[in-house]
Design a protein around this nucleic acid. Structure first.
Lengths: 161, 161
DNA sequence: CATGAAATCCGTAGATC
DNA sequence: GATCTACGGATTTCATG
């Protein structure tokens, strides 16, 4: 009998494939197969399954923003005005993510409502961006800007989807 | 007149290549060439240059942590003990980065010294991780844990045109 | 679920303009 | 730089165990 159900539990091989692809998204399927000790066609099928099931949601190039003229990065904590409704919250999130300066947006529970990771040219551009596009938003009550001196990422992550 | 033995400035084609690769790191060179209207061999050379010069620093698969059993994420602000020297700072960063739960580490200027992005199974695991591995570090003075309700990372660093 | 074989497509180097 | 050509290798499909 054929099994039409999608594989739900990941085995050790899947985890190794995920780790290898997270470390190098352009590793060849042949190399991937050699590492886990399976045939290329088998590995190809597994990776396709991981993509289709959403465990791997995409592949991306990592870009050095400093070399593109965005040498200054910051984490901007944002508090919305009291009584902001759900519509206002998603509105701000959509507003923020539309700017090319915005790298990441975290929607938080706690003191801050959002944490916005931005990359800009210099401190002048940072001030302008925060004042005009974050503090300037009608629902924003306050912001706290923290300069990022250094940054490390272990793996690309997509959380809730 | 023009002396461009080593390409230092990125032209519009380079920016489109970067944007396309940031959005889909596994796009084929042939497809990339079709999009920018140049020959595959030409595009291949340009992309290699972008990689060698460090503008593109790598490729990575985006992994859905929730589907791997890490459904809860948090941003943990960390303040180190007063008087911590540079060695202590880098020591903490290396310490934090080593854990599989740690997705990103931001080394900051401002109230917090670090912001640590973690992905764990549940609130119990979060508490355990923070207490044992962050608050428990001898140089850590205080932490502020913010649950991440939603998260968005920009697919590309800049618009196409 | 894994495999080998086959067909197709792609990456990459080299010569030319 | 950009292009075409050419070839070695990779991806991908499919029948089979």
């Amino acid at each position: 009998m054929e099994r039409k159900t999608l594989r739900q539990d990941l085995d050790d091989v899947d985890r190794r494939l995920i780790a290898a692809l997270a470390a190098d998204g352009r590793i060849t399927n042949a190399e991937l197969a050699a590492r886990v000790g399976l045939a290329p066609s088998t590995v190809h099928g597994r990776v396709q399954s991981l993509i289709q099931s959403g465990v791997i949601s995409g592949f991306t190039a990592t870009v050095n923003k400093a070399k593109l003229g965005f040498g200054l990065q910051a984490l901007v904590g944002v508090t919305l005005a009291p009584g902001a409704r759900q519509a206002s919250i998603t509105d701000f999130a959509d507003h923020a993510r539309a700017f090319p300066e915005v790298v990441q947006v975290f929607f938080l529970g706690g003191v801050d409502d959002f944490m916005v990771h931005v990359a800009v040219a210099d401190s002048s551009a940072l001030r302008t961006f925060v004042v005009e596009h974050i503090s300037g938003h009608p629902r924003v009550a306050s912001t706290r800007t923290n300069i990022i001196f250094d940054y490390h990422r272990s793996a690309s992550v997509e959380s809730f989807r």
